[in-house]
Design a protein around this nucleic acid. Structure first.
Length: 590
RNA sequence: GGUCCGUUGGUCUAGUUGGUUUAGGACGCAUCCCUGUCACGGAUGAGAUCACGAGUUCGAGUCUCGUACGGACCGCCA
């Protein structure tokens, strides 16, 4: 029997026609002499009817069917007497004349339905069953659709799809590399790419001019809900382009994806926000602009306050900043606020000061210290009776992280985010370098090949402070999530040398690490720049999923294990010998 | 590397201050009845050494410690 159409696409136009369908038994309803089976394939569900009197042979097969058996059926499409409005195929049903079981199935470990009640661990172990769920199938289809639009878009704009190697060389910058031992060269290793960054720059040196690739990338770091060790980047690079050129090109793509995949019109150009403003007002380099409650600096107002925590902090050159939670006074108890305080301590905050705004002034533990400043504070924050004001007094980064977190958390808890918003924006003008407390040295905020602003070039000269420089880099943000980032690259080897110097590399160290790139610059590199999208994360947001695993067919769990195959696993001694590898026994240290 | 939370039939879960609980329910599963269901209905039934190990106690699903596994977060992710 040759299939005539997908079960889920059977429709009224086929009434009276004979169809052949193949699919899974989603549900069986046995009424005695009459059996209904919901047949499911990737496109949806259609109701089959088996009548014992009319088609006893087919009926017998239906009687044997169990959940998730795979069936082929031949039958007549007919109109239903009573339509089911909950089903896209609810106006019709298929009267089955012939049926064969193509595969039997054990009772599935969980039911194939949309409101899953199975644990994620179990879903991942039986992922092929989990993926049958319409929700998951929909996510895979969306992913496929978006990928197709991306290919189409860049192809139409003269971008060349060029593959870069997966077996490459370890570079010490950035994330930990996944290493692949070389059989031919004992003690030598390939590394899987963290991104094709250097290759795409060298493709510009090759004259490719416009490059894109759906590139697999690998980073051996701990996982998060929006982070997997292997992921897909939409990687792009353009020669002779300015930051604006690249942003325009990217906006064009986003506009098309939103229209064609979700039928949503987004307005371009997207807003541009300075990195400094994002940090000051949103406490984040990926601001969520779907709601207000902006962070407000109060340092100047409270600098002489009798509350020593505030005045002392300002005297130390640090900051007192606050958010005003509209209607927060009733919503949050003293105990709730203590919980929030405990939470922000993980960002280094020493405490969370708060007041509730009442008709008679401030209320709360620090009210007596700052009641005299209530008028200017309320005015600046726009605070009114019934609001809750949360203050953090600390260094720039601690204040930003703490209040940035609280702003997000409270917005979710108090339902301040109206659904259906797609707030794309660019965060621009990033610092070129940032100080890493852990390593005690300056590191590249973006990566070491990022071009700084032309007017900041003088900071690289002797006797100036290079760390004041800002970069020609830009991140694309959607609803408070970083979905991509890029920059104009350094194409002048002299500037590149100065940047390496500012990062504390000697010439020899820079050569040792990035020889091939430096040579590329010396052999003539066009001015160029690009951008890379986190494809998985973007699709996650487009799908409305809150976990990146829901848009990856076979993801790793939060511990980096893939539960279906149980990777990573041990290998035979023979394989290790061939790779010249001894495995250290760490058991004593554990 | 660290912090917090969780683990009870196939699945999701209830289980109070440690004691009438033969560990309850829903879904699923099995058998039987049923020709218009679509969360089908009805009847009956099977299925759990309460993650593992140690401890406290007259008595542990319940308390303590450890281990394993899972989840969230901090660090990390140029």
């Amino acid at each position: 029997m040759k299939r005539t159409n997908y079960a889920g696409r059977t429709n009224e136009s086929q009434i009276g026609e004979e169809v052949v369908l193949k699919g899974w038994v989603a549900k069986r309803r046995n009424l005695g002499g009459l059996i209904f089976i919901d047949l499911r394939d990737r496109e949806g569900i259609v109701q089959l009817v088996f009548d014992e009197k009319q088609d006893p042979a087919a009926f017998k097969v239906a009687n044997e069917c169990r959940s998730e058996y795979i069936l082929e059926v031949r039958g007549l499409v007919r109109e239903r007497a009573e339509i089911n409005p909950d089903l896209p195929t609810g106006k019709i049903e298929v009267e089955v004349k012939e049926a064969n079981i193509l595969a039997k199935s054990q009772t599935p470990p969980f039911e194939v339905k949309d409101n899953v009640d199975a644990s994620e661990d179990l879903r991942l172990q039986y992922r092929y069953i989990d993926l049958r769920r319409p929700e998951m199938m929909k996510n895979m289809k969306l992913r496929s659709k978006v990928a197709s639009i991306i290919h189409n878009y860049y192809d139409n704009n003269d971008f060349m799809d060029v593959e870069t190697p997966d077996l490459t060389r370890s570079t010490p910058e950035g994330a930990r590399d996944f290493l692949v031992p070389s059989r031919l060269y004992p003690g030598h290793f390939y590394a899987l790419p963290q991104s094709p960054q250097l290759f795409k720059q060298l493709l510009m040196a090759a004259g490719v001019d416009r490059y894109y690739q759906m590139a697999r990338c690998f980073r051996d770091e701990d996982l998060r809900g929006d982070r997997q060790p292997e992921f897909t980047q939409v990687d792009t690079e353009m020669s002779f382009a300015t930051a604006e050129d690249i942003q325009d090109m990217t906006e064009g793509l986003i506009k098309r994806v939103m229209k064609e995949a979700l039928n949503v019109d987004v307005k371009t150009p997207f807003p541009r926000m300075e990195w400094q403003e994002a940090m000051d007002r949103y406490g984040s380099d990926k601001p969520d602009t779907r709601f207000g409650m902006l962070i407000t600096d109060l340092s100047d107002i409270v600098k002489d306050s009798s509350f020593k925590v505030f005045s002392g902090t300002v005297a130390d050159g640090k900051f007192v900043r606050a958010i005003c939670v509209p209607g927060g006074a009733d919503h949050y108890s003293r105990k709730d606020i203590t919980k929030k305080e405990d939470y922000i301590k993980r960002y280094g905050a020493k405490g969370l000061a708060w007041v509730k705004v009442t008709a008679d002034g401030y209320n709360g533990p620090i009210a007596k210290f700052i009641n005299d400043l209530a008028a200017p504070i309320n005015e600046r924050l726009g605070a009114k009776e019934g609001d809750l004001i949360l203050f953090v007094a600390d260094s720039f980064h601690v204040v930003a992280d703490s209040l940035g977190y609280l702003r997000e958390k409270i917005a979710h808890e108090m339902d301040m985010i109206k659904p259906g918003q797609w707030n794309y924006l660019w965060v621009v003008n990033w610092p070129m370098f940032e100080y890493d407390e852990g390593f005690g040295k300056w590191i590249a905020a973006h990566h070491p090949f990022t071009m700084l602003n032309e007017e900041d070039l003088h900071y690289l000269e002797d006797g100036e402070d290079p760390h004041k420089a800002h970069a020609q880099s830009y991140d694309i943000i959607l609803n408070g999530n970083e979905i991509g980032g890029g920059s104009i690259r350094i194409h002048d080897p002299k500037i590149q040398e100065k940047v390496f110097k500012a990062l504390g590399y000697t010439k020899e160290e820079a050569r040792a690490r990035f020889n091939f790139l430096i040579k590329g610059l010396e052999n003539g590199m066009p001015p160029e720049g690009g951008l890379a999208f986190g494809f998985d994360r973007w699709v996650m947001l487009l799908a409305g999923a809150d976990n990146i695993r829901d848009v990856i067919p076979f993801p790793k769990n939060s511990k980096g294990i893939e539960p279906m195959t149980a990777a990573p696993g041990t290998v035979d001694q023979e394989q290790l010998d061939e790779l010249h590898i001894d495995v250290k026994d760490d058991s004593e240290n554990n």
